[in-house]
Design a protein around this nucleic acid. Sequence first.
DNA 1: GTCGAAATTTAGCCACAGCTATATTTCGTG
DNA 2: CACGAAATATAGCTGTGGCTAAATTTCGAC
Lengths: 151, 151
Amino acid sequence: MPPDAPPTCDPQTDLAADAQPDRFQRAREAQAVALLEDYVEMIGDLIAEHGEARVADIAQRMGVAHPTATKAVSRLKREGLAVSRPYRGVFLTEDGAALADRVRQRHRVVVDLLVAVGVPRETAELDAEGIEHHVSDATLHAFEGFLDAKG
Amino acid sequence: MPPDAPPTCDPQTDLAADAQPDRFQRAREAQAVALLEDYVEMIGDLIAEHGEARVADIAQRMGVAHPTATKAVSRLKREGLAVSRPYRGVFLTEDGAALADRVRQRHRVVVDLLVAVGVPRETAELDAEGIEHHVSDATLHAFEGFLDAKG
DNA sequence: GTCGAAATTTAGCCACAGCTATATTTCGTG
DNA sequence: CACGAAATATAGCTGTGGCTAAATTTCGAC
Ligand SMILES: [Mn+2]
Ligand SMILES: [Mn+2]
Ligand SMILES: [Mn+2]
Ligand SMILES: [Mn+2]
């Protein structure tokens, strides 16, 4: 139906329309956890590099003001992903560390897949930072399979 | 440096760390426009199907309460992407329609690429809804090139 | 040991994006 | 054409995620 077709009752179109709310809700949910994932992964990096993650370093890496990082850490603590004592460095819980590892690995696979289909490495790194959070387990496995097949 | 290496001065690691704030800021920016992109594309669908986009239909497709859809439309109008008169249907401006077309095409390419690398169609549709907003022009062109090459 | 600089926290602001409840308008039916 | 149901708009709440400015704590230098 190329040019204007006001009233539609095409069952194909209607089915797709019915599925859309769930798609959008899923995307919104993924978005909600995206920030926490990035914080956890990056805090893991800082701990690996410096032995601890200080709020100032977290803020700097995130490109954010210090109080914003403090609030994010509060949310991480509330979610059971991080721990810290006042005026001291931030550390990951077991859950937080496990999440950080999963997120870091997924990030790597996404970048590798983008490069494998012809995206310049630099661009791949930039885009992967957002894409990764919307890659489901099923898609991740497909990516790994594709990369394996390409040797 | 597998097990704990507190103080790091590895220039490779430090370079990557310096680039991170920009990556995160870019991902945040993409996130900010993602919702508007989805609304515009979907409103375009409704107009193509019914000749206009009513707030109730927008809300239903988005999986959101009516007032939330009304607020989103206000932002679209403020951004010059949509127009509407009180108690009447919503329509896209020239800019809005152009954006809708671009977003719809990008969505299609992303789904096709996911399928091409082995993601099940159903999963591809779900994940693409979030992924699409983080696919840059450079990456989109790479995707198109890959799909062309695969015939 | 003191003290000042640096780091951290706290307070308080804003915009966005969701919600429920209420008021208003439109429109089909009788 | 009047009226009630449906659609739309408005008011007002919540939580997130930004920010600046001010208060507090830590820590290194002297
Ligand atoms: Mn990320
Ligand atoms: Mn990442
Ligand atoms: Mn989308
Ligand atoms: Mn889409």
